[in-house]
Amino acid sequence: MTASASVARGAGRVRRFWSRYGAGYLFVAPSLLFFLVFIFFPLGWSFVLSFQEFGFRGSTWVGLDNYLGLLRDPIFRQAALNTVIYSVFTVAVWVLVAMVLATLIHPLPPRLRTFFRAAYYLPAVTSAVFIALVWKWILNANPWGLANHVLSLFGAGPVGFISDPSSFAGANVALWSVILSSVLTIPAVGVVLYSAALAGIPQELYEAAETEGAGALAKFRHITVPLLKPITLYVAIIYTIAAFEVFERVYVMTGGGPGYATNTIVYLIWRTGFRFGDYGVASAQAFLLFAVIATVSVLQFRALRSEVEY
């Protein structure tokens, strides 16, 4: 075989590949370019920066110092613990509430079902800052906060919901209040996803169960929950990511305080990067969070994945 024949065959392969897939690649090119420039490149840059001490006139390589410093930092450890507590409770409640709500609205007439789906989706299209401001007012420590006003009608309070750092049930009052404000906000995306998934469960399964004498709870437990497992996995993962990245609620409601009671990791990242200008340490914090989220997501995937087919 001559070299020219080999080159010609290679060129032919390229032409065939291009004629077969070229249009597809052209279509994804803008999106790919956007991804490379605005996601991949900044991520790579951020990773490099996490090993540097940032300076206006050039950064200095510090190896693992930023990461090791964080592991020794009591404020970071407190923020990490707060984030884990927040995530565990909010994700568990969000998933449960979304599944129950979707199950409750599923048997409703189509018009009513559409109404509730739209109503429950409202929080997703409402400004997170606005929602946090409303909760700040509701939980205001003074008598003019809604919750304290209600308590005062019963001769109780005022309670420093978001200004009390004292220990309570394994965390502190202020953190529990932030968690409460989150779990009482309807998990909009979950409701919609579960509603769509419920529509895909064959009715015959429920009819067969009814024939066997199963009640509503038994059908929910033995048919609905297992068959929703793939969606539960997805919902759990996206809510875990959202919970670990909690920021605006903390920023607006408590500013991370009192003390460090409601500091979370993303709040610390913001503070370290934008207030201290310490972008190297902020990048290291971001990548530690990235690693934690990735690990938790993998664990969730392993625990919840299933081979359900229906």
Binding site: I39, P42, L43, S46, E245, V266, I269, F287, F290, A294
Partner: peptide
């Protein structure tokens, strides 16, 4: 979305 956090800084 998990990529957003490092991006904020970068």
């Amino acid at each position: 979305r998990s990529a957003i956090t490092p991006m904020i800084v970068t």
